[in-house]
Structure formats: structure tokens, C-alpha cells
Simulated scan of single mutants.
Amino acid sequence: MKNTYQLLIAILWVVLAAGCTKYEKDFDLEANDARQNELNDKILKQLGDAPLGWIMYIPSMDTALITATPVIIKFDIGKGTFTTQSPFPASASSVPSLFELSSATGSPLLSFASGSIFSSFYESGNINDYYFKVLNAGVDTIAVQPYRKGNIYASEGGIPMKLVKLKAPITWFDSPVNLPALFIANDAPFYNSATNTLKLTYKNGYVPPAINMEFSGSSAGNMNFFRTYLPFCRDLGMYPVELYVNSDYNNGGLYYCGNNALYNHIDNGVSPVELFVNPPRKFMRALKTDYLLVRSVSADRTKIGLFAVDKDGTEIITGTLEVE
């Protein structure tokens, strides 16, 4: 019996020794940190090695929509800052925002600072997060995924998207048009016309029925409320006008003018839903997009050329808004 106990003790010591050896082999923290730092350095070098910047295509969180919002990003690796061009006027800020690439989650995590375009877009409910896991880093394309699914309590893993290195300049946001003046100025043709026809064509050949759009301004009191309490206005600089679709004057909603962009946006948590939620949701789902970028404006201000792109940057919607 004594020999049996001694044999069991000996076997136990062998197992423990093997376990310790395996732990040290599999979990060499210093080596792991070195690998992560090397990978982060590689990604940072790629982000900085883009004279024209990168473009991120941000898909809508509404799966009924087929487009993605484009945001051009230029990284300054030495300063740890970035600048953007986008449909949002707040992108025009001359003060760069901070970013960081870390391995806080065990894999590369690209984090944009609070107060940046990305955190403001998150606050307005249009993107899952402003922290992005780097899924894959190619020479010209970097695949990322929002860390969360929409709020601090949600599980990991938002909608995957990608950054694409620009090989040629994109000038969509270079010369902003004064869109509010086009729609609500007293002498604006679109403001004075009851027949402003939106005609769109889709890449798959679909041509929906034309839509009539009528525009109106809001009172000073309402504008003050919008700019104080609506993140889309307050933080992103979007300008709201009132929109009536197909002469439905009982169900007007807000339509946002941005940097060469027209935007539908749902302001959840704000009443009444008949103004802030239902009309914009109905309109964007009819168009299958929450935005349209401005390609051109006619000299007489009666016709606007429009387009939108998908998550791959492909132009999938084109059209016009014209005074009839």
C-alpha cells in the first residue's frame, strides 16, 4: 500500500510539472506583447502611408437600406491625430481629433476619440461604436468591425466595414453647396414650388415611381431645440428643414442638409414620433438609402444631380431632384 501511495504522488508531481511547463510555453506574455506591438506598428505604418487618405464606407444599421455613408480619413501617425471629410459639416473643423491603436482587447483596436465625427455619429445612433477591431490589414484595404453592437451593454461585434486606401482624390466634399438656401430661402425655386420631383435609378435597373418633395423652414424656437437636443444637429452640424412627401401635409418630417448631402435621420427618444421617427423611416425605406450626395446644381438652382454608394464604394443610386 505504501508503494502505491508513493507511486500516486510521483505521478501527481509529473502531471503538475508538465502543466507548468505547458503554461510557460503557451502563455509567454512578453513574446505575445512583442507580437502584438509588431502587428500594431505594421498597421500604423499602413495607415500613415496614404498621402490621399483612406475612405471608410459605413453601412446603415437598418438592413432595409443598401447604401453606406462615406467618410474620408487622413491619419497623422506622428501626432496620433486624424482629420475627416464627410457629409457632416462638423468634419470641416480645423482641429484634428485623436486616435489610438492598441491591443487592449487582445487584438488590434482602432479607437477614435470622444467628440470626433465617429463618436458623434455613434451618439446619433447611426453606427454601432467608435472603437473598431482590426480584422485584417491588407496593403490597400483594412477590414474593421465596431467593437460593440450599439451600446455599452450590447455584445461584441457590430456591422463589418472597411477602409480603402485612396489612389486618386475624391472631391465629393471639397466645395460645399449652401443647401438650406436652396430649399428654404425666400427666393429659392425649390421653396416656392409645390412640385419638386425626385427621380432615382438603381444599379440593378430598378426605377421607382417619382416622388414629390416640398420644403419649409422651422421657427427660431424649434431650431434652437434641434441644435440643443438633437445630436445630428448639435454634434454633426446638420441643418434640418421640414419635408412633405407627395403632398402629405399631415405627416411632415425633418430632412437634413449636410456637406453636399441630403440626409434622412431617425431621432429616437424625441417626441413626437410623427415628426422625428415615422416620416424619415418611411422615406428612407422607400428610397433604400438614408442619404443622397449632391453631384451638381444647375445655374438657375432648379435641378440637383444626386448619387449614393454602397459598402464597397460602388455608385448604386443616381438621380435628380428638379423643380417642375
Rank of each mutant, 00 (worst) to 15 (best):
A168R: 13
T289C: 00
Y229W: 11
L52W: 06
K22N: 09
A143R: 15
G53I: 08
V323D: 08
I127G: 08
P231M: 06
S102A: 13
G269P: 04
A185S: 13
F283A: 12
I170E: 11
T302A: 10
N128L: 05
P59G: 04
F99G: 02
N196H: 03
F99H: 09
D174R: 05
I266R: 07
A104P: 02
F183K: 02
K162S: 09
I58N: 11
A210L: 05
I170H: 10
D248T: 00
S91I: 02
L163A: 01
P272Y: 08
Y130H: 14
N186Y: 09
P160I: 03
D300R: 04
K79R: 15
N251E: 07
N196R: 02
Y263S: 13
P70E: 01
F112S: 03
F173Q: 04
S86L: 07
A18G: 10
C257L: 03
S271A: 13
I184R: 07
D41P: 06
S97F: 08
T289D: 01
N3C: 11
G157D: 08
A220V: 12
T195A: 13
Y263T: 13
P189I: 02
T195P: 02
S103W: 01
S155G: 15
S116N: 00
Q46P: 03
D312W: 02
I142R: 01
C233R: 07
Y249N: 05
F225W: 13
N196D: 06
L12Y: 11
G237W: 04
Y5M: 12
L16F: 14
N260D: 01
S114A: 14
L52I: 08
Q46C: 11
F118V: 07
A188E: 01
I266V: 15
I77M: 07
E156N: 14
T63L: 11
L29G: 11
N251Q: 10
A64H: 12
L7P: 05
P51C: 00
R285H: 01
K42N: 13
R35D: 13
N136I: 01
A286Y: 12
S298G: 06
E100A: 15
K79Y: 07
V139L: 10
K303V: 06
D140M: 05
L8V: 15
P89W: 08
L98G: 15
R227S: 15
Y244S: 09
